[in-house]
Design a protein around this nucleic acid. Structure first.
Length: 586
RNA sequence: GGCCCUAUCGUCUAGCGGUUAGGACGCCGCCCUCUCACGGCGGCAACCCGGGUUCGAGUCCCGGUAGGGUCACCA
């Protein structure tokens, strides 16, 4: 089994369909009357060998108990009969563990989970603030690399100068740093394949392009954009897909760099194995001579990402679903370039909150950093994004980052899309906030305090925070929840009238009660216990109800009918403030 | 229009030929309780439709339908 040396400067020698494996599979196949052997081996060769053997008594899938993967119910014998036409030459070797539900589609299939040096990448273009949909792709790539102890790279794809925005790259870096997706190679950290910014790698792409030209595999495009547009419209009017190759120039001009350069691709059907989607087939109409170098001299994404992924030794390329119909094009280009394609994985789309369309900048997806600014924890965001389109098959909902790294697996990535449900994000954020220690929480809420808290001692703020810890869903609501600890509340009649318990009291009754409270509390030491010991009996003395008396006190000292526990609140506020507010209310 | 992907409560999902179709968010009710929150208990709520295979289909096959994606000198 080929595996990739981490320090190689050569292209990745990844071979998902190497003949080594084929031989092995043939051997196993011919011995099908025997129960399939289960093999495991150590890192760098094979691990988790899954075998499905039609000769095995009840046709169950043998599973490697040491990993716990692929536990299966027995398969009905009949199923095998139906599968007899499955072409054996299609069995797929290693590299990925197919989704469990696909295993039964093979009459015989040996699946080897290849342990290679996994290298994944995130390759955004700096054309706008990074949003959550894109970050999910980055997250899955990162999780995959971390799970296998591999590398995660960041590469900036800034080949479209027109769309690039000021600060775009910085936004990408800030976003990833905030959420904690650390990269092992890329901008700011460097690496063996630097630079990791495509606009600084133009010579590399040009070299590959010139090589293709020399071999007659790429040619200059003689058409003007207007001419192309006309041809395109023609095709559309005829309800045909537009194919450039139908208009391929017979004698293309010599490429002098001022025209666009197209790669010459043979139209043919492609079938490939996607780590998430399984076997995907597409016809020749999906292949066309695409532009690899634009007239402005910059390469296109379609071209340079292939070269960079190859040079940088990327083993698994995760992309969102919108790219699936481009894959044949990429595979064809690999063929023309003489490169082995990486393992492809198409991730399901994330829909916006209407569920009507893909989450995208254009349709109001918030920048990732907007969630930082509203006080979402990175761990909550990661938990949330990871569980859109992935689950571990259990009923677990809340995951730490460490758990995700351990449990993440491409074979359990969904094919169907999911909606970005902010309510669920807030719920998870609340859970993650409650899991923080008080000190951790205190660090996280820096910058979210109300202005009035600026000059307040740390001890006081920590005490306040402890009272709202379990109520907090996101940090931006901290001022609203704690303002009265720092600012004297504005009392108004509406406060009492809108309260179910208090609106029955007359102003005079309120005065009597407040006076009694002041009297009772004046010599109290303001511990939670003694406040309770003093105030509870007062309810009876005043011949009222706890809800009424406590509600009244709460309204006066907090200016709100919603607040933490009364005694805790009074304790933290302190005797001085409480008495002052009560007296003022009188 | 061609091609591709998808389809279980409103939402995220479990399900791998036999389940009272499970969990979570949200919503509602009750309990706890000085309000809110947390927590606990309970409730409402789903297999897109039609064929086929099978003793038996949410699950496998085919066909519809619906949603999404894609068909750039954008990525």
């Amino acid at each position: 089994m080929a595996h990739i040396a981490a320090d190689t400067t050569k292209p990745a020698a990844h071979t998902p369909n190497s003949c080594h494996d084929q031989t092995e599979a043939d051997t196993l196949y011919t011995s099908q009357t025997q129960p399939a052997p289960i093999r495991t081996a150590t890192r760098g060769t094979y691990s988790d060998v899954y075998l499905v053997d039609p000769g095995f008594p009840d046709n169950r899938i043998a599973n490697d108990t040491s990993t716990g993967h692929a536990t299966h119910k027995p398969m009905a014998a009949k199923t095998w009969a139906n599968m007899s036409s499955f072409p054996l030459d299609r069995w797929t070797a290693p590299a990925i563990k197919p989704h469990a539900r696909d295993l039964h589609k093979c009459k015989f299939r040996a699946i080897l989970d290849q342990i290679m040096n996994v290298r994944t990448r995130f390759a955004p273009s700096p054309t706008g603030a990074l949003h959550s949909g894109v970050v999910r792709t980055a997250l899955f790539s990162w999780l995959l690399a971390r799970k296998h102890g591999g590398q995660f790279l960041l590469r900036i794809e800034d080949t479209d100068q027109k769309r690039e925005i000021q600060g775009g790259t910085q936004n990408i870096i800030d976003s990833l740093r905030w959420i904690g997706l650390t990269w092992d190679e890329g901008p700011e950290v460097g690496g063996p394949f630097a630079p990791y910014i495509q606009s600084q790698r133009l010579e590399i792409y040009k070299k590959y392009a010139q090589e293709l030209v020399a071999k007659g595999l790429a040619y200059a495009d003689p058409y003007t954009p207007a001419e192309l547009q006309a041809l395109r419209e023609q095709a559309q009017a005829a309800k045909r897909p537009f194919l450039y190759r139908d208009h391929r120039p017979k004698n293309p001009p010599v490429w002098d760099g001022s025209q666009a350069l197209r790669i010459k691709l043979e139209p043919k059907s492609w079938e490939w194995n996607d780590a998430v989607m399984g076997t995907v087939k597409m016809g020749p109409e999906m292949i066309d001579d695409f532009i690899i170098i634009k007239a402005d001299g910059f390469p296109t994404y379609n071209f340079c990402h292939i070269i960079d992924d190859h040079i940088m030794g990327i083993t698994h390329v995760l992309r969102s679903q919108e790219f699936i119909s481009s894959v044949p094009k990429f595979l064809a280009a690999h063929e023309v370039l003489g490169l082995k394609p990486p393992i492809n994985a198409i991730l399901p789309p994330i829909m916006d909150d209407t569920g009507k369309r893909k989450l995208s900048k254009r349709h109001g997806a918030k920048p990732l950093l907007a969630y930082r600014d509203m006080g979402i924890l990175p761990s909550a965001m990661i938990n949330f994004l990871a569980t859109i389109g992935w689950n571990d098959g259990t009923e677990q909902e809340v995951y730490s980052i460490e758990e995700l790294i351990q449990k993440f697996d491409l074979s359990r990535v969904q094919k169907s899309g999911g909606r970005f449900d902010e309510q669920r994000l807030l719920y998870l954020n609340g859970v993650h906030i409650r899991n923080l220690t008080p000190d951790q929480l205190y660090k996280h809420v820096t910058g979210f305090w109300p202005d009035a808290a600026n000059d307040t001692p740390e001890g006081y703020k920590k005490a306040v925070l402890s009272l709202v810890h379990e109520r907090l869903k996101f940090f931006a609501e901290l001022p609203q929840l704690t303002d009265f600890f720092f600012t004297e509340p504005q009392l108004h009649e509406g406060l009492f009238e809108s309260n179910k318990q208090l609106k029955k009291l007359s102003a005079q009754e309120r005065k009597t009660m407040i006076a009694a409270v002041i009297e009772a509390v004046q010599d109290n030491d303001f511990t939670i216990e003694s406040l309770e010991a003093t105030l509870r009996p007062l309810v009876e003395t005043l011949n009222t109800k706890t809800g009424v008396l406590f509600g009244l006190i709460r309204a006066i000292i907090t200016g709100s009918s919603i607040a933490p526990g009364l005694f805790e609140t009074m304790h933290v506020l302190g005797k001085e403030k409480v008495l002052a507010r009560l007296k003022k209310a009188l």
